[in-house]
């Protein structure tokens, strides 16, 4: 690995971080409003399937994205109704969504395409076009020019979308009445209720946003990264996003940085394969396990100092104290 690789490595890290960011921010809305969301993984998977299927039919990535978002919102709302209206166990519901997603995507995939659960490969027209800025105004400094081009190249509109989502979430959370209410809803719903705002409606609104973002995360996996939907293509990213949300202390900018960290270890993988330390070959699997180990280490460090929403996971019953 030499110095010139670094921009490329960073660019690859950023690309890998996008689904994590979408999913973690989705989780942020749900959890800040008081719904613990273990189901990010499943909603990403369903979103990815919908994106792959719709984009291949429509031949247009934007329609695929919309399809993924629609499915995401539908599932989030079902999860929301079961959590809020029927006061279900939010952990169990999230797990159930993940399991249903694993089965349903493959079941429907086989029924529709008979390709072992995979959707048809997307032609170029059905995928987001990558941007490739040349930074020609930097011709005088070729090293910087190639570095910047390497860093900025190969991204799609969804990369921008993820960063905009973080920025907007920051503004909404700290500078809007919606954010104020959402914070109250996750910390002390009875305070919000007695202030004349419906806790239920607040949570449903948060779940709609959650679904849109989960859909976007899935669409990125299928349309940008995979070029099709593959079975179990999330591979634990929903859980990693949840870990990022916890280690990021439910704060959008910190969550973004943690997602970058996870993605960077993932991106390093391809560079580190075949690495040997002190003449002993490091097994590929050890390198592949890095993001998971990192997630556990980060969670172990965070313990005790969290900003976790106080009422998270507890169904709200009106008038109860």
């Amino acid at each position: 690995m030499d110095f010139a690789d670094i921009p490329l490595l960073l660019a690859s890290a950023i690309r890998l971080s996008i689904p994590l960011i979408f999913a973690a921010i989705a989780g942020l809305y749900a959890e800040r409003s008081g719904i613990i969301d273990i189901g990010l993984e499943g909603k990403m998977l369903l979103g990815a399937f919908a994106a792959g299927a719709v984009a291949s039919v429509a031949g247009n990535p934007y329609v695929g994205l919309l399809g993924a978002m629609a499915v995401g919102v539908m599932v989030s709302l079902v999860q929301g109704v079961a959590s809020v209206r029927f006061r279900g166990n939010q952990l169990v519901l999230g797990l159930a969504i993940n399991i249903i997603a694993t089965g349903l995507t493959v079941f429907v995939g086989i029924a529709l395409y008979a390709r072992g659960g995979q959707t048809p490969p997307l032609p170029d027209g059905a995928r987001f076009s990558a941007i490739a800025p040349q930074f020609s105004w930097l011709e005088g400094v070729p090293a910087l020019q190639s570095a910047l081009a390497g860093l900025a190249g190969g991204h799609t509109i969804l990369t921008l979308g993820a960063f905009v989502a973080v920025a907007v979430t920051y503004l909404v959370l700290y500078h809007s009445s919606f954010g104020l209410r959402m914070y109250a809803c996750g910390d002390k719903p009875e305070a919000l209720d007695s202030a004349g705002v419906s806790v239920y409606r607040m949570r449903y609104q948060a779940m709609v946003i959650n679904g849109l973002l989960c859909g976007a995360a899935g669409a990125y996996l299928a349309i940008v990264q995979g070029g099709a939907f593959y079975r179990d293509m999330t591979a634990g990213q929903g859980y990693l996003a949840l870990a990022a949300l916890i280690f990021g202390n439910w704060k959008p900018v910190r969550v973004l940085l943690v997602c970058q960290l996870f993605a960077a270890t993932d991106a390093l993988q391809s560079r580190l394969q075949g690495l040997s330390i002190a003449e002993v070959d490091v097994p590929v699997q050890a390198i592949q396990a890095m993001p998971y180990v990192l997630a556990i280490l980060l969670l172990a460090i965070t313990a005790g100092k969290s900003e976790a929403p106080l009422a998270g996971g507890k169904p709200y019953t009106k008038g109860q104290r």
């Binding site: 500078h175 809007s176 009445s177 919606f178 104020l180 209410r181 914070y183 109250a184 910390d187 002390k188 009875e190 305070a191 919000l192 209720d193 007695s194 202030a195 004349g196 705002v197 900003e307 106080l310 104290r321």
Partner: peptide
């Protein structure tokens, strides 16, 4: 039992639900 969000300031608690618009 007070209906206050303890991690928010008094001002935020007072405005909650009666903010008067989307952006604060």
């Amino acid at each position: 039992h007070f209906m206050l969000v303890e991690r928010q300031t008094a001002l935020q608690n007072l405005m909650l639900g009666s903010e008067g618009g989307f952006w604060l």
